[in-house]
Design a protein around this nucleic acid. Structure first.
Length: 425
RNA sequence: GCAGACGUAUCGAAGCGGUCAUAACGGGGCGCACUCGAAAUGCGUUUGCCCUCCGGGGCACGAGGGUUCGAAUCCCUCCGUCUGCGCCA
């Protein structure tokens, strides 16, 4: 969410930004919200005057009552009552206007970074850098579930019976590998100075609306029946929510946290969960990183964050590349975003395994996350990035470490987490 | 889950229908004075948001409603904390 003051003073910049995101249908909203805002301020001014008057008269009544001048007090009471209806009406009007303004402001996209490439949708995302050689071996790489099944590592049939499509049982060495990756990723981030955190896996609706847009909420979040609780779609939600309504002393920044959680997603819309296997599912586990920092530091942190994911994958010898989200593919709350993609020797292309985002002050404004600085208070900047989401990373892992004889090599760094195993066979 | 108590600034806490909200009183922090320096002492300072014709004005006592001319104070709902009982990994 952008600052309405900024919108008021720079309507053209906001419109230009909307155009860059190819959301021209939202253009009229800018003038609309300015008009509503002007009205709101007028209504507030009028209401405030009436309240000032009421406060003054109420004080007089108090004084008169104290002196025992009952009749005079009654007279003044009548005066206050006269404005009562008008005041109630103005209050209502103001509230209504504020709601309308907020609703629109929530849909106006955040101002994107000047470096973001302009493009309509994900087909126009831009490759930034490749890391490692995308090797295609001379033997055939089977579909990832097939590799898993060879080791009796997955049971999708039972999962479908128990929970439906989009769930899985991981078993044996594959399940162990899954946990090993999470543990390794956790320690990897701890070694880079991040603080490990296990957050709540459910959050209240006010946190949900603070961290994501309505569209995302509808497509992603599972609601707990009869409670004001949602299952988190990523630990980013509870980790950013941790700072709701706080004023952080400037010297405590940056907050650099790495969190573990299961993630629950409806995956409603575009691709659904038709895809076979564990690529797109309703439940997965993820190691995440988030940063809360000063505005001037967020660009620097953005680069550090995606670099962490690249380094993690490279330490397991998986080729990756970074892909920059173009303007049209960028979620409304985001200033800039990179996907980290891993190489799939089977598909002979890269596929998404992580997403790194700089939200600027958009989440902070919604959640009231402020910093107490030398020159006053300001909204913090927030960022988040996937360290690793194992089901998806297992695909990359198995495909890239599969040998011609059907065994899977365990890279050096993971062995301590696998009880010393050097391969799965 | 049941019952009771509670939620006021940075912390403890007073106020329980108007004279109490930049909030009493106390602690802490910061600044100044005294001092060679420190301690002690003294003085000062220490919430956020909205509007503004920059004179001011409004809002906020966990959150949201209600009663009232007027609510921190009375009533209702919700959230949270504590204590006891119950239940549970």
């Amino acid at each position: 969410m952008i600052d309405i003051k900024f919108l008021r003073e720079n309507p053209d910049a906001v419109k230009e930004n909307i155009k860059k995101k190819f959301q021209d249908d939202k253009l009229p909203l800018v003038d609309q919200v300015i008009e509503l805002d002007t009205k709101r301020r007028a209504v507030q001014a009028e209401g405030d005057d009436l309240k000032a008057n009421r406060n003054k008269l109420s004080k007089q009544i108090g004084a008169l009552m104290a002196q025992g001048k009952k009749e005079e007090a009654e007279e003044v009471k009548a005066q206050v009552a006269a404005d009562g209806e008008k005041l109630a009406q103005l209050d209502n009007e103001q509230k209504e206007l504020e709601e309308q303004i907020l609703k629109i402001m929530m849909t106006i996209p955040n101002i994107i970074d000047p470096s973001v490439p302009i493009g309509k949708n994900d087909t126009e995302n831009v490759e930034v850098t490749k890391y490692g050689d995308p090797v295609v071996p001379d033997f055939e790489i089977p579909y990832h579930t097939e590799i898993m099944e060879r080791f009796n590592g997955i049971d999708l049939d039972s999962a479908r019976k128990v929970a439906g499509n989009g769930f899985y049982y991981l078993q044996g060495d594959i399940a162990r590998l899954h946990s090993a990756v999470i543990s390794y990723a956790r320690d990897f981030m701890i070694n880079r100075g991040f603080t490990y955190c296990v957050p709540p896996f459910m959050i209240r609706s006010n946190v949900v609306t603070g961290v994501m847009s309505f569209a995302e909420m509808d497509a992603m979040m599972y609601k707990i029946e009869g409670e004001d609780l949602y299952l988190i779609g990523t630990s980013e939600h509870s980790m950013i929510g941790k700072f709701i309504d706080t004023i952080i002393p400037e010297e405590e920044l940056p907050k650099t946290l790495t969190s573990y959680s299961p993630c629950f997603r409806k995956e409603k819309g575009a691709h659904g969960i038709e895809e076979r296997g564990v690529y797109r599912i309703h439940q997965f586990e993820k190691q995440e990183m988030i940063v809360v920092c000063k505005p001037e530091d967020s660009a620097m942190w953005f680069d550090k964050l995606w670099q962490n994911t690249v380094d993690l994958f490279r330490s397991m010898d998986i080729p990756v590349r970074t892909l920059e989200c173009c303007s049209g593919d960028l979620a409304d709350l985001k200033v800039k975003s990179f996907d980290v993609e891993a190489w799939s020797p089977r598909q002979k292309k890269y596929f998404e395994v992580g997403s790194c985002s700089n939200l600027g002050d958009a989440q902070a404004r919604r959640l009231k996350i402020r910093v107490n600085g030398k020159d006053g208070k300001y909204f913090a900047h927030t960022l988040n990035n996937t360290v690793v989401a194992p089901p998806r990373m297992l695909i990359a892992f198995l495909e890239n470490n599969l040998r011609a004889d059907g065994s899977v090599a365990i890279p050096e760094v993971l062995r301590p987490y696998m009880g010393g195993m050097t391969e799965i066979k």
